[in-house]
Simulated scan of single mutants.
Amino acid sequence: MLDQIRCTKYTDCASCSFYQKHIFKYRSYPKGVLIPQERVLQNTMYFLLKGEVRVNSEEHPDTIFREGQFILQPVGSRVEFQILEATEAILYLFERPQNVCNERYNKSISMASAGHVGPVVMDTVQPLHNFLYGMKSFLDSDLRCSVFLQAKQTELLFLLNCYYPIKDLAAFYSTIYRYSKSFQYFILQNYQNVKDVEAFAQLGGYSVPTFRRLFKDTFGEPAYQWMLKRKCQDIHVDLLTTDLSISDICYKYGFESLSNFSHFCRSNFGQSPRAIRAEREEGE
């Protein structure tokens, strides 16, 4: 009888400035669908309400997860899904793990950053199961107020924190830290080979917004600002410690002319390239 009771919704969230599409999503697919490999644009938890799915990614190679289970794919990773049985899923998208309990959060972050090898497929406990089916009904009703969804986000984090051991949560979140480390390595290996943020994003196969977001999460400052600092540091080191000519240094860092290079040095160091080079010669 209760299943037949339907609530009347008197609000139109889609017309509100607080309407939010990108925290929780509901997805359903028939058996046999192949979702080709694509890059994940935000850290995403995939909660399977029904069905069976084969996942192929670096984090979950040829891994099957089923109804009542969930996995995590970190931002920037590439993943392919093969729908083995008709599937319903709730997706939760987020920037970074959030703190709802200082002691457990600090312990799990410390353990997660130490790394974990192998796929992690989690089982849904009953309180989380109830939450997910509630979210499905809210999403079906298009109840997407950002304030409401942020409250549901906090509820989800409390459920994960309260009903799962720290070591399991640490293993679950470790893919984010492992991917961040590989992203950091990619940046440090290639920042001297690109002219600007757009070229850097293209080199890594990212959209520019995703690259900027992931970069700031990893390095704590905007990509352009970080790249400019590094460029200044490297130019200064070359002028003071190498035998490269000023012309060689100018073109090494992509300047179109010596006058442009000189203007850059005056703006960032308060001196011309020749004046900086003279400091080395005076100290010898």
Rank of each mutant, 00 (worst) to 15 (best):
D3K: 15
I5L: 06
T8A: 11
T11Y: 08
D12S: 10
Q20F: 12
Y26M: 01
Y26I: 02
K31E: 15
I35F: 00
V40G: 00
V40S: 00
Q42F: 13
Q42L: 05
M45G: 11
M45L: 15
F47V: 13
F47P: 11
F47C: 09
E52C: 10
V53G: 13
V55Q: 07
N56G: 08
N56D: 15
S57K: 00
T63N: 05
G68T: 06
Q69C: 04
Q73T: 02
P74D: 02
V75H: 00
G76C: 04
V79Q: 01
E80M: 06
I83P: 01
L91F: 09
Y92I: 09
E95D: 15
P97Q: 04
P97Y: 07
Q98C: 08
Y105C: 02
Y105L: 05
I109G: 10
S113D: 00
A114F: 03
H116N: 07
H116A: 09
V117P: 01
P119D: 04
V121F: 01
L132K: 06
S137T: 14
L139G: 09
R144S: 09
C145I: 12
F148I: 07
F148L: 11
L149W: 10
L159P: 13
P165R: 04
I166A: 14
K167E: 12
L169H: 06
A171P: 03
Y173H: 07
I176Y: 13
Y177F: 15
Y191G: 03
N193T: 04
N193E: 10
N193I: 06
N193D: 13
N193C: 09
V194L: 02
D196Q: 00
V197D: 06
E198S: 15
A199Q: 13
A199M: 05
Q202R: 12
G205K: 06
V208M: 08
R212Y: 03
R212S: 08
L214G: 10
L214F: 12
T218N: 09
P222R: 14
Q225T: 15
M227N: 03
K229I: 11
K231P: 07
D234F: 10
S245W: 06
D248S: 14
F255H: 11
E256T: 12
E256M: 14
S257D: 08
S262Q: 12
Q271R: 14
S272C: 07
S272T: 14
R277F: 05
E284G: 08
